[in-house]
């Protein structure tokens, strides 16, 4: 569906490249995420793929069209949801969608149904200028669905949305994905990418450092951990221990490097003196010492909760690129 080979782009027409030597392919029905911090080259890449920027160096094919000579009719197959909302403020939500649907040469979805899908049906006849940022974003998002695209470009689709709406957007994307829509997602939200993408690419300073499925990346780069919460009786007269227990809530953090992996504790029942403490520890399943420690805890302590914990995509991104996603 998308084929990119040796893509370079410079805004200044010199050797200061915003993207350099990027190559990747996206299969039909695949969901691909381009992940990276701001200014990494995500939007430049997407803008070239959507024809918003001219292709200068490299070969790019999108939905069967050579982007050296893009055709207007290719946009009947494409949907583009922008990070920045861009709707006509002087038109109502419904007028906005009605206008855009008439520009396509393919069957389109009913604007009112789309508005209902994202909870904007009550404000369909209100001018978009009166909308909140989140409402405008939803309108921009559903506009990209009008022509039922086979290739859907989503630029930060949930950024700035409240969790409930973000969840609705994610569900819509998942449903379209299940129906076979190819998705190109650009985001710096690793959780979103993890949830929606079959494969992700890490882009930093205009260079594509890595492409793989989130699962493979976790298997390859992530450390397998088990997080255990268990109860530990405090010894009588252990004032120091009790003081710590009284002050510290359970916190989530990485292992402290002591080998025990203890990261938090809390007093159970609020008592003093001989109170029980809830301990949360992370054990590496790779390190034999920690495996042994885990076995001891399982044998001697009362286990409250236990589950495996994978490294997040964000942690892997930092590990691979040495950069944070800011």
């Amino acid at each position: 569906m998308v084929k990119v080979e040796g893509l370079y782009y410079s805004y200044t027409n010199d050797d200061k490249y915003a993207v350099k030597d990027i190559s990747f392919e996206i299969a039909e029905g695949e969901s691909f995420g381009l992940l990276g911090p701001s200014g990494a080259g995500k939007s430049t890449t997407q803008n070239i793929l959507t024809g918003l920027l001219p292709l200068k160096t490299g070969e790019v094919q999108v939905a069967g069209y050579d982007m050296h000579h893009p055709k207007r009719e290719m946009f009947n197959k494409l949907g583009v949801s922008f990070e920045q909302s861009n709707v006509y403020g002087k038109l109502t939500a419904l007028e906005n969608l009605e206008f855009y649907r008439k520009l396509f040469d393919v069957p389109t979805l009913d604007p009112m149904e789309l508005l209902t899908l994202v909870g904007l049906e009550q404000v369909a006849s209100k001018k978009a200028a009166t909308f909140s940022k989140g409402m405008k974003h939803r309108l921009t998002f559903v506009r990209s669905m009008l022509n039922q695209p086979i290739l859907w470009f989503l630029d930060e689709p949930t950024t700035g949305l409240d969790p409930a709406i973000a969840s609705v957007i994610k569900d819509i994307v998942k449903e379209k994905k299940e129906r076979g829509t190819t998705i190109f997602l650009t985001t710096h939200n690793m959780f979103l990418a993890d949830e929606l993408c079959d494969r992700v690419g890490f882009i930093v300073d205009g260079e594509l450092r890595l492409i793989d499925s989130p699962r493979n990346l976790k298997l390859k780069y992530g450390e397998k951990l088990v997080e255990v919460e268990y109860v530990e009786e405090a010894a009588q007269g252990d004032e120091a221990n009790q003081a710590v227990a009284a002050e510290q809530p359970i916190v989530s953090d990485s292992a402290d490097g002591s080998g025990t992996g203890t990261v938090g504790r809390a007093t159970i029942g609020g008592g003093t003196g001989t109170g029980a403490h809830l301990i949360r520890r992370h054990f590496s399943l790779v390190d034999p010492v920690e495996v042994a420690a885990l076995q001891e805890v399982l044998a001697t302590r009362k286990i409250e909760t236990m589950h495996t914990k994978e490294a997040t995509l964000e942690e892997i991104f930092i590990k691979v690129t040495g950069r944070k996603l800011v």
Partner: peptide, 14 residues
């Protein structure tokens, strides 16, 4: 300013 030109550019309109 509204960015609507961008939105129009990714439609079949010329």
């Amino acid at each position: 300013d509204e960015g609507t030109i961008k939105a129009l550019t990714v439609t079949p309109a010329k």
